[in-house]
Design a protein around this nucleic acid. Structure first.
Lengths: 245, 245
DNA sequence: CGGATGCTTGAAGCTGCTCAAGTGAAGTGG
DNA sequence: CCACTTCACTTGAGCAGCTTCAAGCATCCG
Protein backbone atom coordinates (compact mmCIF):
# COMPACT_ATOMS: atom_id res chain seq x y z
CA UNK A 1 0.00 0.00 0.00
CA UNK A 2 1.23 3.44 -0.89
CA UNK A 3 1.83 6.41 1.33
CA UNK A 4 -0.67 9.21 0.91
CA UNK A 5 2.02 11.82 0.33
CA UNK A 6 1.92 11.64 -3.44
CA UNK A 7 -1.83 12.01 -3.76
CA UNK A 8 -3.24 14.74 -5.96
CA UNK A 9 -5.85 17.12 -4.59
CA UNK A 10 -8.45 15.36 -6.70
CA UNK A 11 -7.53 12.08 -5.13
CA UNK A 12 -7.62 13.63 -1.70
CA UNK A 13 -11.11 14.88 -2.43
CA UNK A 14 -12.32 11.38 -3.31
CA UNK A 15 -10.55 10.14 -0.27
CA UNK A 16 -12.37 12.40 2.09
CA UNK A 17 -15.95 11.59 1.20
CA UNK A 18 -17.84 10.78 4.37
CA UNK A 19 -20.03 7.76 5.02
CA UNK A 20 -23.12 9.80 4.45
CA UNK A 21 -22.37 10.25 0.77
CA UNK A 22 -20.82 6.87 0.39
CA UNK A 23 -22.30 3.83 -1.21
CA UNK A 24 -21.85 2.04 2.06
CA UNK A 25 -24.63 4.13 3.53
CA UNK A 26 -26.98 1.35 2.55
CA UNK A 27 -25.24 -0.80 5.09
CA UNK A 28 -25.67 1.56 8.01
CA UNK A 29 -28.21 4.20 7.30
CA UNK A 30 -31.75 3.75 6.14
CA UNK A 31 -32.86 1.31 8.78
CA UNK A 32 -32.76 4.07 11.32
CA UNK A 33 -29.27 4.42 12.66
CA UNK A 34 -29.15 7.61 14.66
CA UNK A 35 -26.23 10.04 14.40
CA UNK A 36 -24.35 8.66 17.40
CA UNK A 37 -24.61 5.12 16.09
CA UNK A 38 -23.69 6.23 12.61
CA UNK A 39 -20.69 7.97 14.06
CA UNK A 40 -19.53 4.80 15.77
CA UNK A 41 -19.76 2.84 12.57
CA UNK A 42 -18.01 5.62 10.75
CA UNK A 43 -15.20 5.59 13.26
CA UNK A 44 -14.42 1.93 12.83
CA UNK A 45 -13.97 2.17 9.09
CA UNK A 46 -10.47 2.53 7.77
CA UNK A 47 -10.14 4.32 4.45
CA UNK A 48 -7.50 2.88 2.25
CA UNK A 49 -5.94 3.89 -1.03
CA UNK A 50 -4.90 4.50 -3.63
CA UNK A 51 -4.33 0.81 -4.16
CA UNK A 52 -2.21 0.02 -7.17
CA UNK A 53 -3.27 -2.27 -10.00
CA UNK A 54 -2.28 -5.86 -9.38
CA UNK A 55 -2.28 -5.62 -5.59
CA UNK A 56 -4.44 -8.08 -3.72
CA UNK A 57 -7.02 -7.15 -1.16
CA UNK A 58 -7.11 -10.72 0.05
CA UNK A 59 -6.31 -14.18 -1.20
CA UNK A 60 -7.68 -17.71 -0.96
CA UNK A 61 -7.21 -19.20 2.46
CA UNK A 62 -6.55 -15.96 4.28
CA UNK A 63 -8.48 -15.37 7.45
CA UNK A 64 -11.66 -13.40 7.25
CA UNK A 65 -10.92 -10.13 8.98
CA UNK A 66 -12.89 -7.48 7.17
CA UNK A 67 -15.33 -6.61 4.46
CA UNK A 68 -14.50 -4.03 1.83
CA UNK A 69 -16.48 -1.35 0.10
CA UNK A 70 -15.25 0.02 -3.21
CA UNK A 71 -15.23 3.81 -3.27
CA UNK A 72 -13.49 4.15 -6.63
CA UNK A 73 -11.98 1.68 -9.03
CA UNK A 74 -12.58 -1.96 -9.79
CA UNK A 75 -11.75 -5.17 -8.02
CA UNK A 76 -11.84 -8.64 -9.53
CA UNK A 77 -12.81 -11.68 -7.52
CA UNK A 78 -11.36 -14.91 -8.85
CA UNK A 79 -10.00 -18.32 -8.02
CA UNK A 80 -7.94 -20.95 -9.76
CA UNK A 81 -9.76 -24.04 -11.00
CA UNK A 82 -8.49 -27.57 -10.66
CA UNK A 83 -7.18 -27.39 -14.21
CA UNK A 84 -5.24 -24.21 -13.51
CA UNK A 85 -7.56 -21.87 -15.34
CA UNK A 86 -8.59 -18.61 -13.78
CA UNK A 87 -12.22 -18.49 -12.72
CA UNK A 88 -13.52 -14.95 -12.53
CA UNK A 89 -16.44 -14.86 -10.11
CA UNK A 90 -17.23 -11.21 -10.50
CA UNK A 91 -16.21 -7.61 -10.56
CA UNK A 92 -16.82 -5.06 -7.83
CA UNK A 93 -17.35 -1.48 -8.85
CA UNK A 94 -17.94 1.82 -7.11
CA UNK A 95 -20.36 1.37 -4.27
CA UNK A 96 -20.19 -2.39 -4.06
CA UNK A 97 -19.22 -4.53 -1.11
CA UNK A 98 -17.03 -7.61 -1.18
CA UNK A 99 -15.58 -10.03 1.31
CA UNK A 100 -18.69 -11.88 2.38
CA UNK A 101 -17.46 -15.00 0.67
CA UNK A 102 -15.55 -15.83 3.85
CA UNK A 103 -18.22 -15.74 6.52
CA UNK A 104 -18.65 -19.43 6.91
CA UNK A 105 -15.36 -21.24 7.04
CA UNK A 106 -13.73 -18.04 8.26
CA UNK A 107 -11.32 -18.22 5.33
CA UNK A 108 -11.52 -16.46 2.02
CA UNK A 109 -12.61 -18.68 -0.79
CA UNK A 110 -11.36 -16.45 -3.55
CA UNK A 111 -8.78 -13.84 -4.40
CA UNK A 112 -9.49 -10.15 -4.80
CA UNK A 113 -7.19 -8.17 -7.03
CA UNK A 114 -7.21 -4.49 -8.00
CA UNK A 115 -7.95 -3.94 -11.70
CA UNK A 116 -7.93 -0.16 -11.59
CA UNK A 117 -6.42 2.23 -9.05
CA UNK A 118 -8.90 1.96 -6.20
CA UNK A 119 -9.95 3.52 -2.96
CA UNK A 120 -11.71 1.22 -0.56
CA UNK A 121 -13.18 1.29 2.89
CA UNK A 122 -12.11 -1.51 5.18
CA UNK A 123 -14.62 -2.53 7.81
CA UNK A 124 -13.20 -4.91 10.40
CA UNK A 125 -15.62 -7.76 10.75
CA UNK A 126 -15.18 -8.11 14.47
CA UNK A 127 -16.33 -4.54 14.96
CA UNK A 128 -19.30 -4.80 12.69
CA UNK A 129 -20.39 -8.07 14.26
CA UNK A 130 -20.16 -6.56 17.69
CA UNK A 131 -22.05 -3.46 16.67
CA UNK A 132 -24.72 -5.48 14.89
CA UNK A 133 -25.54 -7.20 18.15
CA UNK A 134 -26.26 -3.81 19.66
CA UNK A 135 -28.18 -2.49 16.67
CA UNK A 136 -30.78 -4.77 15.25
CA UNK A 137 -31.10 -2.65 12.14
CA UNK A 138 -27.46 -3.12 11.25
CA UNK A 139 -27.82 -6.87 11.52
CA UNK A 140 -30.65 -6.78 9.02
CA UNK A 141 -28.62 -4.67 6.68
CA UNK A 142 -25.79 -7.17 6.72
CA UNK A 143 -28.21 -9.90 5.77
CA UNK A 144 -29.53 -7.73 2.98
CA UNK A 145 -26.15 -7.05 1.53
CA UNK A 146 -25.29 -10.73 1.65
CA UNK A 147 -28.54 -11.58 0.02
CA UNK A 148 -27.88 -9.12 -2.75
CA UNK A 149 -24.51 -10.76 -3.30
CA UNK A 150 -26.33 -14.01 -3.54
CA UNK A 151 -28.77 -12.85 -6.17
CA UNK A 152 -25.97 -11.45 -8.25
CA UNK A 153 -24.84 -14.99 -8.86
CA UNK A 154 -28.14 -15.70 -10.53
CA UNK A 155 -27.86 -12.78 -12.89
CA UNK A 156 -26.36 -14.63 -15.83
CA UNK A 157 -27.99 -17.90 -14.95
CA UNK A 158 -30.49 -17.91 -17.78
CA UNK A 159 -28.27 -17.60 -20.79
CA UNK A 160 -26.53 -20.54 -22.26
CA UNK A 161 -25.78 -18.72 -25.49
CA UNK A 162 -22.62 -16.64 -25.63
CA UNK A 163 -24.17 -13.61 -27.33
CA UNK A 164 -26.84 -13.44 -24.66
CA UNK A 165 -24.31 -13.47 -21.89
CA UNK A 166 -22.24 -10.77 -23.53
CA UNK A 167 -25.23 -8.52 -24.09
CA UNK A 168 -26.35 -9.06 -20.50
CA UNK A 169 -22.85 -8.35 -19.26
CA UNK A 170 -22.54 -5.09 -21.15
CA UNK A 171 -25.91 -3.87 -19.96
CA UNK A 172 -25.10 -4.91 -16.42
CA UNK A 173 -21.76 -3.14 -16.32
CA UNK A 174 -23.32 -0.08 -17.89
CA UNK A 175 -26.03 0.11 -15.29
CA UNK A 176 -23.55 -0.30 -12.49
CA UNK A 177 -21.15 2.24 -13.91
CA UNK A 178 -23.72 4.81 -14.87
CA UNK A 179 -23.76 8.08 -13.01
CA UNK A 180 -26.05 10.97 -13.80
CA UNK A 181 -24.04 13.55 -15.67
CA UNK A 182 -21.90 11.12 -17.62
CA UNK A 183 -22.60 10.31 -21.25
CA UNK A 184 -25.82 8.35 -21.22
CA UNK A 185 -24.75 5.16 -22.96
CA UNK A 186 -21.01 5.42 -22.99
CA UNK A 187 -18.59 3.84 -20.56
CA UNK A 188 -15.18 2.33 -20.17
CA UNK A 189 -14.80 -1.31 -19.28
CA UNK A 190 -12.53 -1.55 -16.25
CA UNK A 191 -11.35 -5.06 -17.13
CA UNK A 192 -9.54 -6.77 -19.95
CA UNK A 193 -11.13 -8.95 -22.60
CA UNK A 194 -9.49 -11.92 -21.02
CA UNK A 195 -11.09 -11.18 -17.66
CA UNK A 196 -14.46 -10.80 -19.33
CA UNK A 197 -14.09 -14.05 -21.24
CA UNK A 198 -13.07 -15.88 -18.09
CA UNK A 199 -16.04 -14.44 -16.29
CA UNK A 200 -18.53 -15.33 -19.02
CA UNK A 201 -16.89 -18.69 -19.64
CA UNK A 202 -16.25 -18.26 -23.30
CA UNK A 203 -12.99 -18.28 -25.21
CA UNK A 204 -11.43 -14.82 -25.62
CA UNK A 205 -11.48 -15.33 -29.39
CA UNK A 206 -15.20 -15.96 -29.32
CA UNK A 207 -15.75 -12.89 -27.22
CA UNK A 208 -13.78 -10.79 -29.65
CA UNK A 209 -15.66 -12.15 -32.63
CA UNK A 210 -19.08 -11.68 -31.09
CA UNK A 211 -18.32 -8.15 -29.96
CA UNK A 212 -17.20 -7.39 -33.49
CA UNK A 213 -20.46 -8.85 -34.75
CA UNK A 214 -22.51 -6.70 -32.40
CA UNK A 215 -20.56 -3.74 -33.68
CA UNK A 216 -21.20 -4.63 -37.32
CA UNK A 217 -24.91 -4.91 -36.57
CA UNK A 218 -24.96 -1.41 -35.16
CA UNK A 219 -25.77 -2.47 -31.62
CA UNK A 220 -22.67 -1.02 -30.04
CA UNK A 221 -19.66 1.14 -30.75
CA UNK A 222 -16.34 -0.23 -29.62
CA UNK A 223 -12.94 1.31 -29.27
CA UNK A 224 -10.73 -0.87 -27.12
CA UNK A 225 -12.29 -0.67 -23.68
CA UNK A 226 -14.64 2.18 -24.53
CA UNK A 227 -18.16 1.00 -25.22
CA UNK A 228 -21.20 2.86 -26.42
CA UNK A 229 -24.56 1.17 -26.43
CA UNK A 230 -26.24 2.29 -29.65
CA UNK A 231 -29.39 0.22 -29.30
CA UNK A 232 -30.01 -0.64 -25.67
CA UNK A 233 -33.49 -1.94 -26.40
CA UNK A 234 -32.40 -4.56 -28.90
CA UNK A 235 -29.45 -5.31 -26.67
CA UNK A 236 -31.80 -5.94 -23.78
CA UNK A 237 -33.94 -8.26 -25.86
CA UNK A 238 -30.81 -10.03 -26.96
CA UNK A 239 -29.75 -10.49 -23.35
CA UNK A 240 -33.04 -12.25 -22.71
CA UNK A 241 -32.65 -14.44 -25.75
CA UNK A 242 -35.65 -12.87 -27.44
CA UNK A 243 -33.70 -11.49 -30.34
CA UNK A 244 -31.44 -13.53 -32.52
CA UNK A 245 -29.98 -12.82 -35.97
CA UNK B 1 -51.35 -30.01 3.35
CA UNK B 2 -52.53 -33.43 4.39
CA UNK B 3 -53.96 -34.52 7.67
CA UNK B 4 -51.69 -36.75 9.71
CA UNK B 5 -54.33 -39.41 10.15
CA UNK B 6 -53.22 -41.58 7.26
CA UNK B 7 -49.56 -41.65 8.25
CA UNK B 8 -47.81 -44.95 8.70
CA UNK B 9 -45.89 -45.67 11.90
CA UNK B 10 -42.69 -45.32 9.94
CA UNK B 11 -43.72 -41.91 8.81
CA UNK B 12 -44.70 -40.99 12.32
CA UNK B 13 -41.28 -42.03 13.50
CA UNK B 14 -39.58 -39.73 11.02
CA UNK B 15 -41.98 -37.06 12.02
CA UNK B 16 -41.14 -37.18 15.65
CA UNK B 17 -37.40 -36.64 15.50
CA UNK B 18 -36.44 -33.77 17.76
CA UNK B 19 -34.24 -30.79 16.92
CA UNK B 20 -31.30 -32.37 18.67
CA UNK B 21 -31.07 -35.16 16.15
CA UNK B 22 -32.12 -32.98 13.28
CA UNK B 23 -29.94 -31.49 10.64
CA UNK B 24 -31.15 -28.10 11.72
CA UNK B 25 -29.07 -28.43 14.85
CA UNK B 26 -26.30 -26.71 12.96
CA UNK B 27 -28.44 -23.63 12.98
CA UNK B 28 -28.96 -23.52 16.71
CA UNK B 29 -26.58 -25.78 18.51
CA UNK B 30 -22.84 -25.75 18.33
CA UNK B 31 -22.28 -22.10 19.04
CA UNK B 32 -23.40 -22.69 22.59
CA UNK B 33 -27.14 -22.44 22.79
CA UNK B 34 -28.14 -23.59 26.24
CA UNK B 35 -31.10 -25.91 26.81
CA UNK B 36 -33.60 -23.12 27.59
CA UNK B 37 -32.60 -21.24 24.44
CA UNK B 38 -32.67 -24.42 22.42
CA UNK B 39 -36.09 -25.12 23.78
CA UNK B 40 -37.34 -21.72 22.67
CA UNK B 41 -36.06 -22.23 19.17
CA UNK B 42 -37.53 -25.69 19.16
CA UNK B 43 -40.88 -24.36 20.20
CA UNK B 44 -41.17 -21.90 17.34
CA UNK B 45 -40.60 -24.51 14.69
CA UNK B 46 -43.63 -25.97 12.99
CA UNK B 47 -43.22 -29.48 11.68
CA UNK B 48 -45.00 -30.06 8.44
CA UNK B 49 -45.67 -33.10 6.31
CA UNK B 50 -45.99 -35.31 4.54
CA UNK B 51 -46.03 -32.89 1.65
CA UNK B 52 -47.14 -34.43 -1.62
CA UNK B 53 -45.11 -34.38 -4.80
CA UNK B 54 -45.86 -31.33 -6.94
CA UNK B 55 -46.92 -29.11 -4.07
CA UNK B 56 -45.14 -25.81 -3.71
CA UNK B 57 -43.47 -24.63 -0.54
CA UNK B 58 -43.36 -21.11 -1.92
CA UNK B 59 -43.41 -19.34 -5.26
CA UNK B 60 -41.80 -16.36 -6.96
CA UNK B 61 -43.02 -13.09 -5.58
CA UNK B 62 -44.49 -14.45 -2.40
CA UNK B 63 -43.58 -12.70 0.79
CA UNK B 64 -40.70 -14.00 2.79
CA UNK B 65 -42.21 -15.45 5.91
CA UNK B 66 -40.11 -18.44 6.87
CA UNK B 67 -37.14 -20.59 6.14
CA UNK B 68 -37.47 -24.32 5.68
CA UNK B 69 -35.38 -27.27 6.68
CA UNK B 70 -35.79 -30.55 4.84
CA UNK B 71 -36.18 -33.47 7.21
CA UNK B 72 -36.94 -36.06 4.54
CA UNK B 73 -37.48 -35.87 0.82
CA UNK B 74 -36.32 -33.53 -1.88
CA UNK B 75 -37.26 -30.04 -2.89
CA UNK B 76 -36.40 -28.33 -6.17
CA UNK B 77 -35.71 -24.64 -6.39
CA UNK B 78 -36.38 -23.17 -9.81
CA UNK B 79 -37.55 -20.18 -11.78
CA UNK B 80 -38.76 -19.50 -15.28
CA UNK B 81 -36.35 -17.76 -17.63
CA UNK B 82 -37.29 -14.99 -20.01
CA UNK B 83 -37.58 -17.53 -22.80
CA UNK B 84 -39.96 -19.69 -20.79
CA UNK B 85 -37.50 -22.42 -19.96
CA UNK B 86 -37.27 -23.79 -16.48
CA UNK B 87 -34.12 -22.83 -14.63
CA UNK B 88 -33.31 -25.28 -11.87
CA UNK B 89 -31.19 -23.49 -9.27
CA UNK B 90 -30.70 -26.44 -7.00
CA UNK B 91 -32.05 -29.34 -5.01
CA UNK B 92 -32.49 -29.47 -1.28
CA UNK B 93 -32.06 -32.79 0.43
CA UNK B 94 -32.32 -34.13 3.95
CA UNK B 95 -30.74 -31.72 6.36
CA UNK B 96 -30.58 -28.75 4.06
CA UNK B 97 -32.11 -25.33 4.56
CA UNK B 98 -33.86 -23.25 1.94
CA UNK B 99 -35.68 -19.96 1.76
CA UNK B 100 -32.81 -17.56 2.22
CA UNK B 101 -33.19 -16.39 -1.36
CA UNK B 102 -35.78 -13.93 -0.14
CA UNK B 103 -34.00 -12.02 2.58
CA UNK B 104 -33.29 -8.90 0.64
CA UNK B 105 -36.29 -7.78 -1.35
CA UNK B 106 -38.51 -9.61 1.10
CA UNK B 107 -39.99 -11.58 -1.78
CA UNK B 108 -39.06 -15.03 -2.97
CA UNK B 109 -37.01 -15.01 -6.10
CA UNK B 110 -37.69 -18.60 -7.00
CA UNK B 111 -40.21 -21.41 -6.66
CA UNK B 112 -39.79 -24.40 -4.39
CA UNK B 113 -41.58 -27.58 -5.36
CA UNK B 114 -41.67 -31.00 -3.72
CA UNK B 115 -39.99 -33.72 -5.80
CA UNK B 116 -40.43 -36.51 -3.31
CA UNK B 117 -42.83 -36.88 -0.38
CA UNK B 118 -41.22 -34.59 2.17
CA UNK B 119 -41.26 -33.61 5.79
CA UNK B 120 -40.01 -30.14 6.52
CA UNK B 121 -39.57 -27.84 9.47
CA UNK B 122 -40.94 -24.37 9.05
CA UNK B 123 -39.16 -21.65 10.96
CA UNK B 124 -40.97 -18.32 10.92
CA UNK B 125 -38.44 -15.65 10.01
CA UNK B 126 -39.87 -13.08 12.37
CA UNK B 127 -39.26 -15.38 15.29
CA UNK B 128 -35.77 -16.33 14.31
CA UNK B 129 -34.83 -12.73 13.66
CA UNK B 130 -36.15 -11.72 17.05
CA UNK B 131 -34.38 -14.57 18.78
CA UNK B 132 -31.12 -13.87 16.97
CA UNK B 133 -31.05 -10.42 18.51
CA UNK B 134 -31.13 -12.02 21.92
CA UNK B 135 -28.63 -14.74 21.12
CA UNK B 136 -25.51 -13.61 19.40
CA UNK B 137 -24.57 -17.18 18.55
CA UNK B 138 -27.76 -17.73 16.60
CA UNK B 139 -27.10 -14.63 14.54
CA UNK B 140 -23.72 -16.00 13.55
CA UNK B 141 -25.24 -19.29 12.62
CA UNK B 142 -27.68 -17.63 10.30
CA UNK B 143 -24.82 -15.92 8.53
CA UNK B 144 -23.03 -19.23 8.28
CA UNK B 145 -25.94 -21.02 6.73
CA UNK B 146 -26.41 -18.20 4.25
CA UNK B 147 -22.75 -18.29 3.44
CA UNK B 148 -22.88 -22.00 2.83
CA UNK B 149 -25.76 -21.43 0.44
CA UNK B 150 -23.59 -18.92 -1.28
CA UNK B 151 -20.69 -21.25 -1.73
CA UNK B 152 -22.92 -23.94 -3.11
CA UNK B 153 -23.44 -21.74 -6.13
CA UNK B 154 -19.73 -21.93 -6.83
CA UNK B 155 -19.68 -25.69 -6.73
CA UNK B 156 -20.13 -26.30 -10.42
CA UNK B 157 -18.46 -23.09 -11.46
CA UNK B 158 -15.30 -24.63 -12.78
CA UNK B 159 -16.63 -27.04 -15.33
CA UNK B 160 -17.55 -25.93 -18.78
CA UNK B 161 -17.56 -29.46 -20.14
CA UNK B 162 -20.78 -31.45 -19.80
CA UNK B 163 -19.14 -34.68 -18.63
CA UNK B 164 -17.33 -32.82 -15.86
CA UNK B 165 -20.53 -31.28 -14.61
CA UNK B 166 -22.34 -34.60 -14.65
CA UNK B 167 -19.55 -36.35 -12.76
CA UNK B 168 -19.44 -33.53 -10.23
CA UNK B 169 -23.20 -33.65 -9.88
CA UNK B 170 -23.31 -37.38 -9.23
CA UNK B 171 -20.56 -37.19 -6.64
CA UNK B 172 -22.21 -34.22 -5.01
CA UNK B 173 -25.61 -35.86 -4.74
CA UNK B 174 -24.01 -39.03 -3.48
CA UNK B 175 -22.16 -37.22 -0.72
CA UNK B 176 -25.27 -35.37 0.31
CA UNK B 177 -27.44 -38.47 0.25
CA UNK B 178 -24.97 -40.77 1.92
CA UNK B 179 -25.79 -42.08 5.36
CA UNK B 180 -23.69 -44.56 7.29
CA UNK B 181 -25.36 -47.91 7.02
CA UNK B 182 -26.59 -47.55 3.48
CA UNK B 183 -24.82 -49.19 0.57
CA UNK B 184 -21.56 -47.30 0.23
CA UNK B 185 -21.77 -46.10 -3.34
CA UNK B 186 -25.36 -46.71 -4.26
CA UNK B 187 -28.17 -44.22 -4.21
CA UNK B 188 -31.39 -43.17 -5.85
CA UNK B 189 -31.63 -39.86 -7.65
CA UNK B 190 -34.60 -37.97 -6.25
CA UNK B 191 -35.11 -36.00 -9.45
CA UNK B 192 -35.90 -36.68 -13.08
CA UNK B 193 -33.40 -36.57 -15.92
CA UNK B 194 -35.10 -33.46 -17.16
CA UNK B 195 -34.58 -31.70 -13.83
CA UNK B 196 -30.94 -32.71 -13.84
CA UNK B 197 -30.42 -31.48 -17.37
CA UNK B 198 -32.09 -28.19 -16.58
CA UNK B 199 -29.91 -27.83 -13.53
CA UNK B 200 -26.67 -28.63 -15.34
CA UNK B 201 -27.69 -26.64 -18.40
CA UNK B 202 -27.34 -29.37 -20.92
CA UNK B 203 -29.91 -30.90 -23.23
CA UNK B 204 -31.64 -33.97 -21.78
CA UNK B 205 -30.48 -35.97 -24.78
CA UNK B 206 -26.88 -35.06 -24.09
CA UNK B 207 -27.28 -36.02 -20.45
CA UNK B 208 -28.71 -39.36 -21.40
CA UNK B 209 -25.92 -40.04 -23.87
CA UNK B 210 -23.14 -39.07 -21.52
CA UNK B 211 -24.56 -41.11 -18.67
CA UNK B 212 -24.73 -44.08 -21.04
CA UNK B 213 -21.11 -43.43 -21.96
CA UNK B 214 -20.03 -43.35 -18.32
CA UNK B 215 -21.86 -46.62 -17.88
CA UNK B 216 -20.12 -48.20 -20.88
CA UNK B 217 -16.76 -47.13 -19.48
CA UNK B 218 -17.47 -48.88 -16.22
CA UNK B 219 -17.58 -45.73 -14.14
CA UNK B 220 -21.14 -46.15 -12.94
CA UNK B 221 -24.04 -48.55 -12.91
CA UNK B 222 -27.39 -47.14 -13.92
CA UNK B 223 -30.90 -48.45 -13.65
CA UNK B 224 -33.40 -45.68 -14.15
CA UNK B 225 -32.87 -43.47 -11.10
CA UNK B 226 -30.68 -45.90 -9.24
CA UNK B 227 -26.99 -45.08 -9.48
CA UNK B 228 -23.94 -46.94 -8.29
CA UNK B 229 -20.56 -45.31 -8.43
CA UNK B 230 -18.18 -48.03 -9.55
CA UNK B 231 -15.06 -45.92 -9.74
CA UNK B 232 -15.39 -42.87 -7.51
CA UNK B 233 -11.73 -42.00 -7.88
CA UNK B 234 -11.80 -41.71 -11.65
CA UNK B 235 -15.15 -40.02 -11.36
CA UNK B 236 -13.65 -37.45 -9.05
CA UNK B 237 -10.77 -36.80 -11.43
CA UNK B 238 -13.28 -36.47 -14.22
CA UNK B 239 -15.25 -33.92 -12.23
CA UNK B 240 -12.13 -31.81 -11.99
CA UNK B 241 -11.40 -32.14 -15.68
CA UNK B 242 -8.24 -34.10 -15.03
CA UNK B 243 -9.44 -37.22 -16.74
CA UNK B 244 -10.75 -37.31 -20.24
CA UNK B 245 -11.22 -40.17 -22.70
C1' DC C 1 13.11 1.25 -33.05
C1' DG C 2 12.07 -3.37 -31.14
C1' DG C 3 9.80 -6.04 -28.14
C1' DA C 4 5.88 -7.11 -25.32
C1' DT C 5 1.13 -7.28 -24.51
C1' DG C 6 -3.60 -7.47 -25.62
C1' DC C 7 -6.75 -7.87 -29.05
C1' DT C 8 -8.49 -9.48 -33.59
C1' DT C 9 -9.06 -12.63 -37.46
C1' DG C 10 -8.83 -17.14 -40.00
C1' DA C 11 -9.49 -22.09 -40.64
C1' DA C 12 -10.57 -26.67 -38.94
C1' DG C 13 -12.55 -29.71 -35.70
C1' DC C 14 -15.35 -31.25 -31.90
C1' DT C 15 -18.98 -30.74 -28.44
C1' DG C 16 -23.42 -30.35 -27.60
C1' DC C 17 -28.05 -29.01 -29.65
C1' DT C 18 -32.17 -29.85 -32.45
C1' DC C 19 -35.39 -32.62 -34.57
C1' DA C 20 -37.21 -37.06 -34.91
C1' DA C 21 -38.03 -41.70 -33.99
C1' DG C 22 -37.75 -45.67 -30.92
C1' DT C 23 -37.93 -48.27 -26.40
C1' DG C 24 -39.62 -49.76 -22.19
C1' DA C 25 -41.82 -49.50 -17.73
C1' DA C 26 -46.04 -48.33 -15.30
C1' DG C 27 -50.71 -47.57 -15.29
C1' DT C 28 -55.73 -47.88 -17.40
C1' DG C 29 -59.61 -49.91 -18.79
C1' DG C 30 -62.16 -53.34 -21.20
C1' DC D 1 -55.11 -60.64 -17.96
C1' DC D 2 -53.81 -58.37 -22.00
C1' DA D 3 -54.02 -54.47 -25.47
C1' DC D 4 -53.57 -49.33 -25.19
C1' DT D 5 -51.95 -45.23 -23.60
C1' DT D 6 -48.70 -42.47 -21.42
C1' DC D 7 -44.64 -40.76 -19.74
C1' DA D 8 -39.71 -40.73 -19.09
C1' DC D 9 -35.90 -41.84 -21.06
C1' DT D 10 -32.84 -43.40 -24.88
C1' DT D 11 -30.82 -43.44 -29.46
C1' DG D 12 -29.73 -41.62 -34.13
C1' DA D 13 -28.39 -38.19 -37.68
C1' DG D 14 -27.18 -33.71 -39.06
C1' DC D 15 -26.11 -29.10 -38.01
C1' DA D 16 -24.35 -24.96 -35.55
C1' DG D 17 -21.79 -22.68 -32.19
C1' DC D 18 -17.88 -22.52 -29.79
C1' DT D 19 -13.08 -23.86 -29.12
C1' DT D 20 -8.48 -24.58 -30.51
C1' DC D 21 -4.40 -23.60 -32.86
C1' DA D 22 -2.10 -20.22 -35.49
C1' DA D 23 -1.03 -16.06 -37.40
C1' DG D 24 -1.69 -11.03 -38.02
C1' DC D 25 -2.25 -6.08 -35.99
C1' DA D 26 -2.12 -2.30 -33.13
C1' DT D 27 -0.90 0.03 -29.04
C1' DC D 28 2.12 0.90 -25.32
C1' DC D 29 6.72 1.40 -23.31
C1' DG D 30 11.43 1.17 -22.75
Amino acid sequence: MHAYADMSTEELELFRVACGFCSLRELCWPMGLEPPELARLHSMIRRSGPLGVGNHLFGVGERFTAIYAVRTGCIKSYSIGADGHELVHGFYLRGEVLGFDAVHPDRHRCNAVILEPSFVCVIPYKDIARLSVEFHSLHNQILRVMSREFSRQLKFADSSVATQRIAAFLMDIHSRLYQPGSAEYEFRLPMSREDISNHLRIAPETLSRLIAKMHRKGLIDVDRRRIRLLNPVRLGLMAQGKHHG
